[in-house]
Amino acid sequence: MSDRTQAFTGLTDDYRAFRPGYPGQTLETLRGHVREGATDAWPEPWLLLDVGAGTGISTRALRAAFGPGPRVVGVEPGHDMRDTAEAGADGADGVEYVDARAEGVPFPDSGAALVLTAQALHWFDRPAFYAESVRLLAPGGTLAVLNNNRDLAGSAFIDEHESFLEWYSPGYDRHYRTYDLVGELSAVRGLTGAEEHSLPWARALTPDEYLGMAMSSSRTAAAARKIGEDRTRAELRAIADRHFPDGRVEVPYTTQLVLARRV
């Protein structure tokens, strides 16, 4: 696909239905970091930006974590992603969505208490996004990178799932999100105090839920284009059945939260 921002076109219903949320403990850590940096000079209400918001999973999580006070805005250039997020809003979420890329967010300088990206940084021009975040953040504000990473070590199930994608999804490598985020943020002028928090956990799914989650992936979609959707579904279902004959699929995750503060 020539426009990477539209990579999830046609996948968003499964994405919204089957992708995991984020642990409450991790969101509490994020909220605490933002509040610790607060100053009287911050614009009211606080502006919380969720960049690469997708179908709004992390945007809604911000509203739940911070309560009704701040302004919460999801920034998402993918048309299907943003439409699904907006269609799923029930009015009580109190969140907004705007059409923009991570490297050019249409908000003024030094106005945001938080710039978050969840499950999306690998799609960005990272240096350009970091510079844009520094521009957006008020002094004391937080840049946060949040990922639910499948635990690649110690699970034969995950190994077979990842191997399937490496075999059939052109260019895929299971280590695509393995980079030194603390080191990268520490090197960004205008940020300080980069730190990482990790939380291992496991998600229990039915085989159908696992299949729905797998089919929400742009990489699985690439495999389906190569070998056909029916074969893709059959092979993924067989992986689940081999490892979980009792019908309870367990997906091990480590949630990674990397934080830095605007000086």
Rank of each mutant, 00 (worst) to 15 (best):
D151L: 14
D90A: 07
M81S: 07
A240F: 14
A7W: 11
S216Q: 10
E36V: 01
A131Y: 04
I227R: 06
G56N: 09
A224Y: 11
M215E: 13
L116E: 11
E166N: 01
P106M: 08
D50T: 06
V51I: 13
E86Y: 01
P70R: 07
W46D: 13
D159R: 09
E132W: 07
V182Q: 00
R135M: 05
R248T: 15
Y130G: 00
L165E: 06
D159C: 00
L62P: 05
V51R: 09
P23H: 09
V34S: 03
G74N: 02
Y179E: 10
F129H: 10
R31C: 12
D13R: 14
G56P: 05
L257H: 09
V98Q: 05
S155M: 11
G21L: 10
L181F: 00
D173K: 14
D125G: 06
V263F: 00
S216E: 13
S198T: 14
S217V: 04
M215L: 15
E28Y: 01
E166Y: 09
R242G: 01
D151Y: 05
L27M: 15
L116T: 10
L185W: 00
D180Y: 03
R219D: 10
F164Y: 15
L211R: 05
S218L: 01
G56R: 01
G247K: 08
F157P: 07
D125M: 04
E44T: 14
R4I: 14
G140D: 04
V72K: 02
R101N: 03
L27N: 02
V73R: 09
V98K: 01
D230I: 07
V182H: 00
L121G: 00
A38W: 15
V51C: 07
R101W: 02
R4N: 10
D109F: 06
L136R: 08
A153I: 13
V182R: 00
A100H: 08
A7Q: 11
R35P: 00
G10I: 12
E160S: 11
D208P: 03
W201Y: 15
R219W: 15
D109H: 14
S110K: 12
Y176A: 05
R82N: 06
A118W: 11
S217W: 15
T142K: 03
E235R: 12
L165R: 12
D50W: 13
H161F: 15
L47M: 08
L146M: 04
L116K: 08
P207L: 02
S133N: 02
W123N: 04
A89N: 12
P127Y: 06
V182N: 00
A85P: 09
E28T: 14
L11G: 09
F107P: 13
Y15H: 12
A64Y: 01
V251R: 03
L185R: 01
V249G: 05
A194S: 07
E195F: 00
E229T: 10
T29L: 15
G88L: 11
T5K: 05
H243M: 07
T26G: 02
A89I: 04
G88P: 10
R177Y: 04
D80S: 09
R35E: 15
E103A: 10
D246F: 08
G154W: 08
E86I: 13
A120E: 13
T55M: 05
E235W: 10
H197I: 13
N148K: 03
T206P: 04
S216L: 12
A224L: 12
T59M: 04
D13I: 03
P207V: 08
L27P: 05
T12F: 08
G91T: 10
R219K: 12
E209M: 01
L136N: 05
